Amino acid sequence: MEFFVEHRLLGLLIGIGTFLIIGLFHPVVIKAEYHWGTRCWWIFLLLGLAGIAVSMLTDNVLLSALAGVFAFSSLWTIKELFEQKERVRKGWFPENPRRKNDSRPQ
């Protein structure tokens, strides 16, 4: 960690981590909605709350920042799941033929 601070690379490392975390959540939204619909929103709520806790409880700046990005990306995913459902309804993304609605388990 000292190397990154001494060479003023911490911000760059946080930026790269943020880019990768946000990039990871795009396909996660698509796959989660395809397989489970919007029923899995609570998982992302728990992940978001856990990320907030980690971010607040750590003294490490890098871990705190990346946990915060992860937390709010998880919370944003809840909104995106419901928007993805609409995109599927409009035909922009494929519908899972084995899942007829969100209330019935597979």
Score class of each variant (00 low, 15 high):
Val54Ser: 02
Asn101Gly: 07
Lys85Arg: 15
Leu81Cys: 04
Gly68Asp: 05
Leu47Asp: 09
Tyr34Leu: 06
Val29Pro: 01
Val88Cys: 04
Thr38Trp: 01
Arg89Gln: 08
Leu49Asn: 06
Gln84Gly: 04
Trp76Leu: 10
Ile30Val: 14
Trp41Arg: 04
Asn60Trp: 01
Leu49Trp: 08
Phe19Asp: 04
Leu57Cys: 12
Asn60Gln: 09
Thr38Gly: 14
Lys100Tyr: 10
Ser55Val: 03
His35Ile: 04
Lys85Trp: 05
Gly17Tyr: 05
Glu95Phe: 06
Gly91Val: 00
Val28Glu: 02
Arg39Ser: 15
Ile78Val: 13
Leu66Lys: 00
Ile22Met: 11
Arg8Asn: 15
Leu12Val: 15
Thr58Ser: 10
Phe93Ser: 06
Gly68Thr: 09
Met56Arg: 09
Ala53Ile: 13
Phe70Glu: 02
Leu66Ala: 00
Gly15Pro: 08
His35Val: 07
Arg99Pro: 05
Leu9Trp: 14
Arg99Leu: 14
Asp59Lys: 07
Phe19Asn: 04
Ala65Met: 08
Arg98Pro: 00
Glu95Thr: 06
Pro97Ser: 08
Lys31His: 07
Ile52Leu: 15
Val29Cys: 09
Ile78Cys: 06
Lys90Gln: 13
Met1Trp: 07
Val69Tyr: 00
Val5Thr: 14
Ile14Arg: 01
Leu62Ser: 00
Asn96Thr: 10
Phe93Lys: 06
Thr18Phe: 10
Lys100Leu: 15
Val54Asp: 00
Ile30Asp: 04
Thr38Tyr: 03
Asp102Pro: 05
Val88Leu: 03
Pro27Asp: 07
Phe25Gln: 07
Asn101Gln: 12
Met1Gln: 10
Gly51Thr: 01
Thr77Ala: 06
Phe44Tyr: 11
Leu20Thr: 13
Asp59Ile: 01
Cys40Gly: 01
Leu66Trp: 01
Leu57Trp: 06
Phe19Thr: 09
Phe44Asp: 00
Gly15Glu: 11
Asn60Tyr: 02
Lys85Thr: 08
Ile21Phe: 05
Ser55Cys: 11
Leu20Asp: 06
Phe3Lys: 12
Leu10Lys: 02
Leu57Gly: 13
Ala32Phe: 06
Thr58Met: 08
Trp41Lys: 02
Phe93His: 12
Lys31Ala: 14
Pro97Glu: 12
Leu81Asn: 01
Leu12Lys: 11
Glu6Ser: 15
Arg87Asn: 12
Val5Tyr: 14
Leu47Ile: 06
Ser74Asp: 03
Leu46His: 09
Gly23Tyr: 03
His35Asn: 14
Val5Gly: 03
Cys40Ser: 11
Val88Glu: 13
Gly51Phe: 02
Val29Thr: 13
Phe3Ile: 13
Arg8Gly: 14
Phe70Met: 05
Ile52Met: 13
Asp59Glu: 13
Gly15Ser: 12
Gln106Lys: 07
Trp42Glu: 07
Val28Trp: 02
Arg87Met: 12
Phe72Gln: 02
Phe82Tyr: 15
Phe44Glu: 00
Trp76Lys: 06
Ala71Asp: 06
Pro105Tyr: 11
Leu13Arg: 02
Ile16Gly: 06
Trp42Phe: 15
